[in-house]
Design a protein around this nucleic acid. Structure first.
Length: 495
RNA sequence: GGCCCCAUCAUCUAAUGGUUAGGAUUCCAGAUUUUCAUUCUGGCCAUACGAGUUCGAAUCUCGUUGGGGUCACCA
């Protein structure tokens, strides 16, 4: 179990609770606990980061799978500015992808009294102390140490200070960290990670001179007080964990399970940053991705279940276990996301599709050929934005004709063919379905004794303004006879 | 630089110490499609390197190299 192992204290400081859980874990590789509480604890940046969504998703899945709770906490101890708005942005993104947190959102900025109480408790128990060293003195100390090629660390000068404090100095509060030995983080992803106290620790500050608490202190206090049993977070936090264990230990709190999930990297192999493109989750909505595709993509980054690629929320909920997470970082590649997105679009009901397309400016609810249109197009689009474009290419008469298409598909002989086809359409009686139009095309082809391409290419230019697109019979069925004739006339009148 | 983590196709990944190292995405080719896309079939492509343990190593150990993270009165 996570503990501080000093040569002095051989006895275990572990709560029986944790020992029991470990035993369960050993007996049942796929752990199911009665009580699993996870949390997502972002700092208020104004939007939900794609990497944040991944850890939130994994935390959510694990909590829900065990019938537990998934909590949301805003880490705003720094200074409160737009925290409400930032939290709202996160909840909005959660809502879009279908994640839901339990309970009320906790804001650290409104819990300052709690942190002060626990800092005072440590002070009273002699587990923390006031340090009157100024920032300037600290900087000077660090400079000297660095010059001597030593690790920069606090020199414990006020650790056992009993004299009178210097005049007019605001004190910071430092916690008494172990001076020797090691701290082992029992991580569910990385395994046991041993940190040598002498290498990484000093009496770090838990409260600033102005009385506000620092990160490693509040995280531990909050996770403990909120009853968090499983901390699933980015592995950039792994090196913070020993400090948090020091706090847990000093306060006598049970140490949770840690799962440090590897980072998502960009193509250069670095941590994903804003300049790598879309890091804001809501950008994915704008770009026409579906929440299902995004979540499916994220859950497969660093986690797998055999050869399975497609996971519904229900399947994720049934199969996800944080101890199956990979140890290595993964690179974010859009091709797979695109593939997943097109998969989900293809398999989506037309009603749902119709609803989602409204966000992209396409209103089809009352269109009488809606089904034909969507069935034809949903196999062709990678994103909803593409889909919207394709729809407009059919519904809106082409503003002009592509030069290359004209040259390749609209020859001198084409005019007569198109005129013949126009006549056939006018005399074709009632035309509704793609097969009706296809029949007319067949008739003309037979009558003129030409190949399908002879009529297909010029007709395509007329209808679409270019040489690619869905089946012509489908396009005609969607826009109707009158519009078809009008578009043919427009091409014939061209030049 | 100290500490920590990581290392299977270009990418995401699979493989009780025994498989011709599997799947998926991308890419390429063929088939279907009047076009394009879809779909289907096939193909290319990997255990970073070096020792050791073992009858046998992608898998265990050590080292090397490479990459990443982190070192605040930020979170």
């Amino acid at each position: 179990m996570s503990a501080i192992d000093t040569p002095k204290s051989k006895f275990s400081i572990l709560p029986a609770f944790n020992i029991a859980l470990t035993k369960i874990a050993q007996l049942h590789p796929k752990r199911i606990y009665n009580m699993v509480v996870t949390r997502f604890a972002p700092s208020p940046t104004g939007y939900l980061h794609i990497g944040g969504l991944r850890t939130a998703l994994l935390s959510y899945l694990w909590a829900r799978r065990n019938g537990g709770k998934f909590l949301l906490r805003i880490e705003d101890t720094d200074f409160s500015r737009n925290d409400e708005a930032a939290a709202l942005a996160i909840v909005e993104a959660f809502k879009w992808v279908g994640l839901e947190h339990d309970g009320t959102i906790e804001y650290q900025s409104s819990r300052l009294a709690i942190y002060q109480e626990y800092a005072q408790k440590l002070l009273d128990e002699g587990k923390a102390y006031k340090c009157y060293m100024s920032k300037e003195e600290l900087d000077a100390l660090r400079e000297q140490q660095t010059a001597r090629k030593e690790r920069a660390k606090y020199d414990n000068r006020y650790r056992d200070f009993t004299g009178t404090p210097p005049e007019g100095r605001e004190a910071v509060i430092r916690i008494k960290a172990p001076l020797e030995g090691s701290i082992t983080v029992h991580d569910g992803v990385k395994g046991d990670v041993v940190f040598n106290v002498a290498d990484i620790l000093d009496d770090f500050i838990i409260a600033r001179a102005d009385g506000t608490p620092t990160y490693n202190f509040v995280v531990a206090v909050d996770d403990a007080l909120m009853g968090v049993t499983d901390v699933i977070r980015g592995d950039d936090h792994l090196s913070n964990t020993p400090k948090q264990i020091v706090v847990y230990d000093a306060l006598g709190f049970a140490i949770p399970h840690f799962f440090h999930v590897p980072m998502i990297h960009n193509h250069e192999g670095k941590k994903l940053s804003k300049r790598d493109g879309a890091t804001d989750v809501m950008m994915y909505k704008t770009m026409g991705y579906t929440p299902e595709a995004l979540l499916n993509f994220l859950v497969r980054l660093g986690w797998s279940h055999g050869d399975q690629e497609i996971f519904s929320m229900a399947e994720m909920l049934e199969l996800f276990d944080p101890s199956d997470i990979n140890r290595s970082a993964s690179v974010y590649n859009v091709e797979k996301l695109d593939w997943l997105n097109s998969h989900y679009i293809k398999n989506m009901s037309n009603d749902k599709l119709c609803e989602l397309l409204e966000f992209h400016g396409v209103m089809l609810v009352s269109h009488d050929k809606r089904e034909i249109l969507l069935d034809a197009l949903k196999e062709r689009a990678k994103t909803l934005v593409e889909m919207a474009t394709l729809i407009n290419e059919i519904l809106v008469r082409p503003a002009g004709f592509d030069e290359a298409a004209l040259k390749k598909g609209y020859k001198e002989e084409s005019k007569a063919i198109l005129q013949t086809f126009s006549e056939a359409l006018k005399n074709g009686g009632e035309l509704h379905l793609p097969t009706d139009y296809h029949h007319v095309m067949e008739t003309v082809v037979a009558q003129l004794e030409i190949g399908f391409g002879k009529i297909g290419q010029p007709l395509r230019v007329a209808l679409m303004g270019k040489l690619s697109g869905p089946g012509l019979d489908t396009v005609m069925a969607i826009i109707g006879v009158d519009e078809t004739l009008a578009r043919i006339d427009a091409l014939l009148a061209h030049q």
